[in-house]
């Protein structure tokens, strides 16, 4: 396994687009998580309120809310690292190096594992940064301190890593199928920002199929870290990782992995 990770690392370490995208993602993540507080203060200054609540008193960085808050905000940026994976995979097809790798003695499964190890690495790296940000912001702003609170709900950091990994696996299947980075990136953007929302919107409003929409891939992935902010305006809010949500998300992980495997087996390199 170490060998497969090394191979991927040698391939990508001098790829400029990779570093730009990675930097972009982490800057966005840090800016939003640190800047969210200032944003709320700004809203207060503008005289805005949520049903009579002053936005600046929302305890964004208070344990144990903090982990779900941060993970939820981070989920909006998962498309950046997904782009990196798409680029690194489509490079292989463009340069036909995926073929040369196999000719040189890599099995197709090893090729796949090598790519997936990179996806897992990015998801874990993001989780580690989230963890560090959480401890930093918590120690600066949280009014409750102490280890008994700090580690509560910390499972959302793991949920974040899993969420990213499943999303990356989906992106990988897409690029394996399309084989071109441009089209894959546009399709992923369209689906993530628009398409699934439109489809589930129609299903919910026109057909009232509320149960079905939770099975859509993006929604299933997003529900690993549900929107936590409703509770601040007294809406019913899920503040735990639901077992059913986890099961549906893992089902998609299985489907994506199976799809990738099938693409690799079926097609000529």
């Amino acid at each position: 396994m170490m060998r497969l990770i090394q191979i991927e690392w040698l391939k990508i370490k001098s790829l400029k687009a990779l570093w730009i995208m990675t930097a972009l993602y982490f800057i966005a993540l840090i800016m939003v998580s640190v800047g969210a507080k200032s944003g709320l203060d700004f809203l207060t200054a503008k005289g805005m309120d949520f049903n009579g609540i002053n936005p600046s008193i929302v305890p964004l960085y208070a344990y144990d809310d903090l982990w779900q808050n941060l993970a939820y905000m981070a989920s909006f940026f998962k498309i950046f690292p997904a782009f990196i994976l798409i680029i690194s995979m489509s490079n292989e097809f463009t340069y036909r190096t995926h073929r040369q790798n196999v000719i040189d003695g890599l099995s197709r499964s090893e090729f796949l594992l090598s790519k997936m190890s990179f996806a897992a690495f990015l998801a874990l790296l993001s989780a580690v940064v989230l963890l560090l940000l959480g401890f930093l912001l918590g120690s600066l702003h949280s009014d409750v301190r102490g280890t008994e609170y700090m580690f509560q709900s910390i499972e959302f950091v793991l949920a974040h890593a899993l969420q990213f990994f499943i999303y990356f696996t989906g992106a990988m299947l897409l690029v394996l199928w399309i084989r071109r980075s441009g089209i894959s990136i546009v399709l992923l953007l369209l689906y993530t920002l628009l398409l699934e929302r439109i489809i589930t919107g129609i299903l919910r409003l026109a057909l009232s199929w509320d149960d079905v929409i939770n099975f859509f891939p993006l929604r299933a992935i997003n529900r690993l870290v549900p929107n936590p902010f409703g509770k601040y305006i007294f809406q019913e809010t899920q503040t735990f990782l639901g077992l059913q949500d986890l099961a549906i998300a893992l089902l998609w992980l299985g489907l994506f992995t199976f799809g990738i495997h099938w693409q690799l087996r079926k097609r000529d390199f």
Binding site: R3, Q6, I7, L10, K11, S14, L15, K16, N91, Y95, R96, T97, R99, Q100, N101, V102, I103, D104, G105, L106
Partner: peptide, 29 residues
Amino acid sequence: RKRIGAILETPCFYHYLDAESNLRVVARI
């Protein structure tokens, strides 16, 4: 295939890597 040295059709390498780095990938494989 690790015991076979092979080139098929056009030479396939990572365009953005130099010769040494490209061969390092092959050596790991």
